[in-house]
Write a protein that binds this DNA or RNA. Structure first.
Lengths: 129, 129
DNA sequence: GTTCTCACTTCCGTTTTGCAAGCATCTTGC
DNA sequence: GCAAGATGCTTGCAAAACGGAAGTGAGAAC
């Protein structure tokens, strides 16, 4: 049993190299990384400038903590997000999109546009894009 | 006794009132409909002109039949695809994107572009976009 | 009619989800 | 300093979704 959580924290999750690539299709490869109901919502929050675990928790979709933890670990593993020291002076860490993660903006924008036009119940947010 | 399996398949879906909508965010609403590893691959195939069950089965990702069946039913329910008589003269049915489904093209294109640039192992296909 | 294909459905073990707790650091207030 | 939160996770467990394989029924092909 590890003495502290920090010891375990070195390996965020099962650090197995995921050999799951269903095909060389770029859409399929993207979906292998992002294809679930939560991951892109975390990316959306990051694009809105949110950076802390509690910020993601505060989003209206109420992501469960274990899912958020898992998704952040996965995004870190794939270098879509990175950790930086929080800018509020504390020793805590914050998350930030890498350039690879920021490159997902067109995907989010396309989903936002389609959602606004065709998904029932979707409304424009007050948050700046 | 039902004449066809499609008749049996009609379930009490009309009695459902509040389905799953986690928030009014258009991205979240889109992900409620499309957020899994298979749905957008079926849409991709449809954009490539594939229209039959066996065509989707033949894609390199090897979608299981039960998953494909479920996803097609969901896409039908949300009017993202529709059924039309197959054009090979038989009585079988084919699937086709509605305008709502065709409007997903920018999403697929953005995912393709991101995949090509950032997803490991993705290669451009020989199929025209 | 017989055989084959197509489009599913059913079964069932495995994996993922989601909710509620728990728990180890921090940080804050005193 | 210390107790009380806040924060950022992990664990446990039931429920749902997934995924492989086999089964099935209606056409189509012969």
């Amino acid at each position: 049993m590890p003495k502290t959580m920090a010891d375990k924290k070195r390996r965020p999750a099962a650090a197995k190299t995921a050999p799951e690539r269903r095909s060389p299709c770029p859409v399929a490869c993207s979906l292998d990384l992002l294809g679930d109901r939560w991951t892109l919502l975390v990316v959306r929050d990051l694009m809105f400038g949110r950076s802390r675990f509690k910020d993601f928790m505060a989003s209206p979709e109420r992501i469960p903590t274990n899912i958020l933890s898992d998704r952040l670990a996965r995004l870190l593993r794939h270098r879509i997000v990175e950790q930086i020291p929080a800018e509020d002076g504390t020793k805590r860490l914050a998350y930030r999109l890498t350039s690879k993660g920021a490159a997902l903006r067109p995907v989010l924008e396309a989903m936002r546009d389609w959602g606004l036009a065709h998904a029932p119940g979707s409304r424009a947010a007050l948050v700046p894009a």
